[in-house]
Design a protein around this nucleic acid. Structure first.
Lengths: 346, 346
DNA sequence: ATGAAAGCGCTAACAC
DNA sequence: GTGTTAGCGCTTTCAT
């Protein structure tokens, strides 16, 4: 219990000294290299144990020169968002099969913090970096990219940087959602979205607007709310929408947190509006929530494959994988308008 | 676009050469040290930009000697479990205020992988390590601990290692749940738990059994299922329990995933048994699920404070923080038994 | 304000 | 099978 507290950690030299061999032999013995006598090896190991020696990975990495790290970094907006955590899960499983370890850091959707995290990981020479970027500018990564460290962008595309990416089919998914609701007869549809600067938000909004145009709904912007980034904000936004006169007869909630907020707002509502959400939500099937679903694990898996390819030396141009979405009709999205659908806007 | 691909990354020496100063001056200029002429500084910066230079943090760390890292590691069982991700969130917020960055890796509840992850992070000389350990043995961390790197165990206690920890009041919470159900009149209570080797599971089971003893329920073990580690397994386990004759009139699901599985299994059930879950679940309030709740963010926050204390040089003995639990009665746990409660076991 | 030399802990070469 | 030497890229003396 009372070992040398401050003494700093023992180095290979001390292990070598204690076991009476040269530093290089100690290195070989501990690294498990073949050409070491069995008893030498065990002597060195004992000395290491006794000293509480741990290899200094920093020194090793410096000497070996960078591309020996087993660590891959992942930068996401928010660990607590199941979309991201499922993505991380898919990525990790795939990397683990290759002996690579995933470390995940959360940017809190702050571009400056994202940059500092990327710097920290890059400086530590991770083997590759997967980013769900919240930034709108990625020039600072160009140099790293040219020096050969692999990047994969997920969920949101790189800006002015030719690297691999895995994206959702946001436009199509949102268009489907919009078309689904107009097909049931809705003309006043409340739309609630995340931070307006995010490309995912813009793409989804575009898709939705396409559907509105196709259905001849001109006043879609009347019921649009943006920048609802957390559940509580989304809940308030939905309550505000429902308080309008005339109230929307349907809702399109453009991500999982917003859908949660809406479900909260709709709790106990006598005649709830129709609801379609983007992203799956926990218990969505049990609750009968219609959603535009997709597979975050697959997204992670595909990202891992692109990355592994590059680690293996693939040199081709940037590739883009698009993950499909599909509408799951479970009840909430099929409720017809309670009042005549054409009351407003004509 | 066609920069030197293979050329390896530029070093400080190259930046120095290009800007016509010594290597040390270049170092000073880029590190933002005061005693550098303004035009020298800008010349060096230009050269660095032109070369796509990035500081080699590995070399810096080797030279500076370990305790300058801004990275703190977190090892958890599963990123996709909201309990862990909320814990990570609380931890991260607190660390960020001190300029420290959190990197999280997932052990998948595999002790061997946990060990390898700990090794990888420790070798990279993280500033501290927070672990929700799935292992039952932590001797290999003792040496690191003695060399002064701070550990904090969360959710599950360290074994034979005197380090700080933040734990839930599992025993009390589970006892409350059991007492709540017997108070409503239940005598046949299905209990579904996670991996039996986990201390959290054992503590919760002990607490529940205490409540059964206090209520004079002797046959509690008849309806016990363990090792239900994921939602699907839990769902099957609950269905199997409900198929018994006589069927349990109530369920105690001992963690959030198991509760999700139970909710799935109970979907559309004409006369669902009472249900109390351990851990909060998403939409738990909307769905009326009674739970033994606690605050994972607080757990993370407290862990961060213990860690920061140690980083700041605190030398006292290991401290243990216990996070309280409280029963939230929302409906599902208050349903009375459908059939006479005393049918079985007397 | 700038530079020269030493060295952090390790491993790759090349001895022996 | 084992030892010697050199050097990864940086920062720290200590000079100038």
């Amino acid at each position: 219990m009372t070992t040398d507290r401050k003494a700093g950690r023992p180095s290979l030299a001390q292990v070598a000294a204690l076991s009476g061999v040269s530093i290089k032999t100690a290195s070989r013995a501990l690294a498990g290299e073949p050409r070491v006598a069995a008893d030498t090896r065990s002597r060195v190991r004992d000395a290491a144990d006794q000293l509480g020696y741990r290899l200094n990975g920093v020194a090793r990495e410096l000497r070996r020169g960078a591309s020996t790290s087993t660590l891959v970094g992942l930068l996401i907006g928010d660990l607590a968002n199941p979309f991201y955590s499922r993505l991380a899960g898919g990525l990790e499983r795939e990397l683990r099969m290759r002996g690579l370890q995933l470390i995940t850091a959360s940017t809190d959707e702050d571009p400056e913090w994202e940059r500092r995290l990327a710097d920290a990981l890059l400086e530590r020479r991770v083997r590759g970096l997967v980013i769900a970027s919240t930034a709108t500018e990625h020039a600072h990564l160009a140099a790293e990219h040219h020096h050969g460290i692999p990047f994969v962008f997920v969920d949101r595309p790189p800006v002015a940087l030719a690297v691999d990416s895995v994206l959702l089919d946001n436009h199509h998914g949102a268009r489907q959602a919009g078309a689904h609701l107009t097909a049931v007869g809705h003309r006043r549809i409340g739309v609630v979205g995340d931070l307006s600067r995010l490309s995912t938000h813009r793409d989804r909004l575009d898709g939705f607007v396409d559907a509105m145009r196709a259905a001849g709904v001109a006043n879609w912007a009347d019921y649009l709310v943006e920048n609802a980034h957390d559940v509580a904000t989304a809940e308030r936004a939905v309550l505000a929408l429902l308080g309008r006169a005339p109230a929307p007869t349907a809702l399109f909630t453009m991500n999982n947190r917003i859908t949660l907020g809406a479900l909260r707002a709709l709790r106990g509502h006598p005649a709830p509006p129709a609801l379609v959400g983007f992203d799956e939500v926990d218990l969505g099937d049990v609750l009968g929530v219609s959603v535009v679903a997709h597979d975050p694990e697959e997204m992670g898996q595909r990202a891992a494959r692109l990355l592994l390819d590059r680690i293996d030396g693939h040199r081709g141009p940037a590739r883009q994988v698009v993950i499909p979405t599909r509408l799951l009709a479970r009840g909430s999205g099929e409720r017809p308008p309670a009042s005549p659908a054409t009351t407003a806007g004509s």
